[in-house]
């Protein structure tokens, strides 16, 4: 049996596009396409983390609006990771070290979570 480049390329790409579905994980650059696949109610703990900047007058603005290269979904993932690893303090310190905040501004991390079908807000940190 002989194989040419065409057969190898076709087989490789078709196989690799299937494996993320089979293993239920992303194998970059081959992705699992599970966006919105779970019903909202099936997720045991639906939550979002927001990272905002508080100014001296009490006004707030999402950190992502400051052209930092990270959008709200990135910040959600990062805040969640550091929160569950008990490193939220490190997270906010690093954000403050970035130099993107003025002296009188503070970082606030908020967790929005569904409890018994109702959204609740928990401010986890103001620094």
């Amino acid at each position: 049996m002989t194989f040419n480049i065409r057969q190898i390329v076709i087989f490789f790409f078709l196989l690799m596009s299937f494996i993320p579905f089979l293993l239920m994980t992303d194998l970059f650059p081959f992705m699992r396409f599970a966006m919105f696949a779970e019903t909202v109610r099936a997720i045991p703990q639906k939550e979002f983390f927001t990272v905002e900047v508080l100014n001296a007058r009490g006004g707030s603005q999402s950190l992502s609006e400051r052209q930092i290269g990270l959008d709200d979904s990135h910040l959600n993932y990062l805040a969640r990771r550091y929160y569950y690893n008990g490193q939220l303090d490190f997270f906010s310190t690093e954000l403050k070290k970035s130099g993107l905040l003025k002296d009188n501004e503070k970082i606030t991390v908020t967790q929005k979570i569904i409890v018994n079908g109702e959204w609740q807000k928990h401010v986890l940190l103001i620094k």
């Binding site: 078709l14 992705m31 396409f33 599970a34 696949a37 909202v40 109610r41 099936a42």
Partner: peptide, 30 residues
């Protein structure tokens, strides 16, 4: 092959929903 990969990407999106949530994905308030 590119056509197949594009078509498969959509197909996986569809069957991921069916495997993960079944009919609840569309037969509920999802």
């Amino acid at each position: 092959l590119i056509q197949c990969l594009i078509a498969l990407s959509y197909f996986y999106c569809g069957i991921e929903k069916l495997f993960t949530s079944g009919a609840a994905w569309f037969y509920s308030d999802n």
